[in-house]
């Protein structure tokens, strides 16, 4: 990092553990650029979203142009460039889920949380997304993911129970599995 200039007095954008993860990723691949996606995951897991300063720090660590890192950060739908709610709820509404009540599930969640599709609750606890890729749980439709953990075969009561569990901070129980 530059040791002078306007940003020098500020806290470094990334924690030590994140930097270590980025450096380990860089070792894994024949090209350093392959480490961009894993590095951005490490950043997002630390900060919750990708800040401009963090993108610059990743570019510097990997020896790449900032534009190369930013191009990746803006392409993939799972990277956030703004702070979202503490917990992310995603409802799959593709065909298999749509045939089994995904729209009703989304409407129920909108009512239960008091937000519309795409919104974040006032307390910042939940962001609700109803426009996502098929989440690969068509055998357990309708479903939602909360923080990338799948909950399947949901009716309104089951969805409420998940929200309650997440709110209470209780360890999340056995995650649902696809039926084989």
């Amino acid at each position: 990092m530059a040791d002078s200039g306007p940003g020098a007095a500020e806290a470094p954008p990334l924690g030590r553990e994140t930097l270590a993860r980025i450096r380990r990723s860089k070792q894994l691949y024949p090209w350093a650029s392959s480490a961009i996606l894993p590095s951005l995951w490490a950043v997002q897991e630390e900060l919750g979203y990708l800040t401009p300063a963090a993108l610059l720090a990743v570019a510097e660590e990997l020896g790449l142009e900032p534009s190369e890192v930013e191009a990746v950060a803006t392409f993939y739908s799972m990277y956030f460039r703004h702070r979202a709610g503490e917990h992310l709820i995603q409802v799959c509404r593709n065909v298999s889920c749509g045939l089994r009540g995904a729209d009703e599930l989304l409407r129920h969640l909108e009512r239960a949380l008091g937000v519309e599709d795409g919104g974040t609750t006032e307390d910042g606890a939940f962001t609700l997304e109803g426009t996502v890729e098929c989440l690969g749980a068509c055998g357990g439709a309708p479903m939602m993911q909360v923080d990338r953990i799948s909950y399947e075969n949901l009716d309104a009561a089951a969805a409420d129970a998940v929200l309650e569990q997440v709110r209470s901070g209780a360890p999340r129980g056995r995650r649902s599995r696809a039926r084989a």
């Binding site: 894994l28 691949y29 090209w31 350093a32 650029s33 392959s34 480490a35 961009i36 996606l37 894993p38 951005l40 995951w41 190369e68 191009a71 990746v72 392409f75 993939y76 739908s77 799972m78 990277y79 890729e133």
Partner: peptide, 27 residues
């Protein structure tokens, strides 16, 4: 053997987009 995680892009299932993504580019 290296496990590499994507970040949300259906197109990366197309094999050449997968390669671009794995190289660290837009898929």
């Amino acid at each position: 053997l290296i496990v590499h995680g994507g970040a949300g892009a259906y197109i990366c299932g197309e094999e050449t987009a997968l390669l671009d993504s794995l190289e660290g580019r837009r898929g």
